[in-house]
């Protein structure tokens, strides 16, 4: 066991990767809502985000530096890149108006206070992972 250094909040592994590195890792300073948790990462959303990866969710901007990628979920608007902090609504990119980037989604990079939702298709994708690659959990 060691401290997660360098200011990193956490990371995970998608289904199907090597068993030796499978799992979710979260910085104790960004975990939970009390104790060692530090603002603005003190509402437990680091775990929500990383477990989303563990259940096969991608970042909503699809980790591309433009509008070319897809997070493989139909009901998250295409967007150009990550959002940070607590953005003002709407933040329009990739012709995704009028509502713009879904920066309140758990799979963006905003502060915990600014994120509060998965979409129905993201939930379906996670359920599919639970029924298949992660079926060993149940």
């Amino acid at each position: 066991m060691r401290t997660l250094g360098g200011g990193l909040l956490g990371y995970a592994q998608f289904p199907g990767g090597p068993p030796a590195t499978d799992g979710v890792v979260i910085n104790y300073r960004a975990f939970g809502t009390t104790g060692t948790a530090q603002a603005p990462f003190d509402k437990g959303r680091t775990a929500t985000h990383e477990i989303g990866h563990y259940f096969n969710l991608r970042h909503i901007w699809a980790d591309t530096p433009d509008c070319s990628g897809s997070d493989m979920v139909a009901d998250t608007p295409n967007c150009a890149g990550p959002n940070y902090g607590t953005p003002s609504w709407p933040h329009i990119t990739c012709n995704n108006g009028p509502n713009g980037d879904m920066f309140m989604n758990y799979m963006d990079y905003t502060d915990h206070a600014a994120m509060f939702m998965f979409t129905a298709q993201q939930v379906l994708r996670m359920r599919t992972a639970l029924d298949a690659a992660r079926s060993g959990l149940g």
Binding site: G6, G7, L8, R29, A30, P82, Y84, Y109, T110
Partner: peptide, 15 residues
């Protein structure tokens, strides 16, 4: 240095 007390950040930090 990674060992320093570096602020938490969601914005990725290149290393």
């Amino acid at each position: 240095s990674e060992e320093d007390d570096i602020p938490l950040s969601r914005r990725p930090r290149e290393r």
